[in-house]
Amino acid sequence: MSKYTEAISSIYFTMHNRVKPKTLGHCEDKNLEVLEELAERATPKKPKNWKAERRPNGRVEFNCPICNRLYNERVNFCASCGQALDWSTND
């Protein structure tokens, strides 16, 4: 089960089985934090140092905006941290 589905299942279960569903406990707060982190990583961000690091030989170089991992080719997701990368205006 993925982190997404596990957290969502826990929140739904708790909210439907509590007398006061508007009151979330520590466990649900943690699951909401996990969902926020996953949603943040899934939202594409612009690569760092892209424009400053174009190479004359046509190769590219850029850093992940979250973990700063160096890449020399375009990727859609960082292999280290999973951050989605946005190439929409970097062509």
Rank of each mutant, 00 (worst) to 15 (best):
K22T: 06
C81N: 01
S9I: 03
F77P: 00
E36V: 09
K3A: 07
K30G: 05
P65Q: 02
S2G: 03
L85A: 03
I11A: 04
Y4E: 08
R69V: 08
S2L: 05
I11L: 15
N17P: 09
E36F: 05
G82I: 01
Q83Y: 02
N68G: 03
M1F: 08
D86S: 09
L35Q: 02
A7N: 03
M15Q: 12
M15E: 08
C81T: 00
C27M: 13
S10F: 08
C27A: 09
R74I: 02
N76S: 11
L32K: 13
N31K: 13
I8W: 13
A84S: 06
K51N: 15
A7T: 02
H16W: 09
A84H: 07
R74A: 02
A42T: 05
R54P: 01
D29F: 14
E6D: 11
K30H: 14
E61M: 14
C27F: 12
F13A: 13
A39Y: 06
K20Q: 13
Y4Q: 06
E33D: 14
Y4A: 09
L38K: 06
H16C: 09
R74T: 01
F77G: 03
P56H: 04
Y12T: 11
E40D: 15
A84F: 04
D29P: 02
V75M: 08
G58E: 02
E73L: 06
N17W: 04
T5R: 10
E53D: 13
E53A: 12
K45Q: 15
H16A: 06
V19S: 11
A52C: 05
Y71N: 01
L38E: 03
W50M: 03
C27E: 13
F62I: 05
K46R: 04
E6K: 08
N90L: 15
S9M: 08
L38M: 14
T89V: 07
D91F: 09
T14Q: 11
K30T: 13
P21E: 12
N17S: 15
N68L: 11
R18H: 09
K46V: 10
A84D: 00
N57Q: 03
I11P: 01
V60D: 01
M1G: 15
N57K: 07
V34S: 09
R55D: 05
L32T: 04
G58H: 01
Y12R: 07
P65C: 05
C64A: 04
T89L: 08
H16K: 13
E33P: 04
W87R: 10
P47T: 03
E36Q: 10
D29G: 05
L35R: 09
S9R: 14
R59H: 12
K51D: 14
E33Y: 07
T89Y: 05
M15V: 15
K3G: 06
K46F: 11
S10E: 09
E61D: 06
S10G: 07
K46P: 00
A42Q: 11
W50C: 00
W50F: 15
V19G: 11
L24N: 07
L35H: 05
C81D: 08
C64Y: 00
A39S: 12
R41D: 00
E53R: 14
A7P: 03
A7I: 01
T43V: 05
W50L: 04
R69N: 02
E37I: 03
K51I: 11
N49P: 04
A52W: 07
E28Q: 15
N72F: 11
I11S: 02
T23S: 12
T14Y: 14
K45M: 06
Y71I: 02
R41Q: 04
E40G: 09
F62C: 02
R69F: 05
G58I: 05
S2E: 06
